[in-house]
Write a protein that binds this DNA or RNA. Structure first.
Lengths: 142, 142
DNA sequence: TTATAAATGCAACTGAGTTGCATTTAATTT
DNA sequence: AAATTAAATGCAACTCAGTTGCATTTATAA
């Protein structure tokens, strides 16, 4: 078994990456991975559809996003908009949390790594496994 | 103009509360406020529908939730489930942040006040206005 | 008590995401 | 290289949360 958390996503070729994740290398998947690597902010379904081409099937795209998320290649972010956005990297887990910045003006979502420090206690009887932080505000482009 | 943040929600009668918020005191609204005060965890549309009675109209309920949220009587919480849940109190804003605890087993959402301390820096050019934290784990009942 | 602006009820709609199924394709086997 | 097969795709139909338009009713102010 492969330890996904130890795979360095950015340094791998797109092909190697899909191989390691046990995913077949289809044209769309390669394009998706490439795009996620370049993306400066989190991508919604419609962002991706626009970039991958309008001909791309909805189910196929969504199924690939799910597949990518399952293996930890990307992670979904749920802000107040109700539209899930995806960004490269596994879901932030214990020890490697990162926050998400949502711009209130353009609704763009950015991953903000290593800039938040969260100390949490939970009521007795509760067990915390992971933490997700969403910062709302105005981004550099707005 | 009334400063909503200074209104102490719990100490007021339901009637006075709606008055102060500039909302008409309808039967459903009074029941809703009452229920929100008693609720031990955040409420979804279907939680509320069940409690308010199946006869309650969907639009009416949703419109009341929006109205309550707008005046800061309740705040919506968006976890990974895609179903918005609501809890008493204005949206956590600067200085009075609180976290939300989502139970991975029963999907119940709790507000956790005064137990998290978050220090955040954001990249230059970004301006943070408020912060929302979701802790995932197992609750005391599971 | 009357006027009126807001709240309700209903039905129809929107839009994100899912599912079933037949077809195609990437990867494996011989 | 050809045959096999399990997974990926494309399509249509569906689900489900939440919204909207509009006619009717109700809370509140005059």
């Amino acid at each position: 078994m492969l330890e996904q958390t130890k795979v360095n996503i950015i340094d791998q070729s797109n092909e190697a990456l899909l191989d390691q994740m046990g995913l077949k290398k289809t044209k769309l998947r390669l394009e998706l991975v490439k795009h996620f690597k370049d993306a400066k902010h989190a991508q919604s379904y419609s962002d991706l559809k626009q970039i991958m081409g309008e001909g791309v099937d909805k189910s196929t795209l969504y199924r690939n996003l799910s597949a990518f998320e399952e293996v930890g290649l990307i992670h979904g972010i749920n802000d107040h908009s109700g539209i899930t956005k995806y960004a490269l990297g596994a879901s932030p887990s214990a020890g490697q949390e990162h926050a998400h910045f949502v711009c209130e003006s353009c609704e763009t979502v950015y991953c903000v790594k290593g800039m938040t420090e969260i100390q949490m206690k939970v009521p007795s009887g509760f067990k915390a496994k992971n933490i997700q932080t969403i910062i709302r505000g105005t981004c550099a482009n707005c």
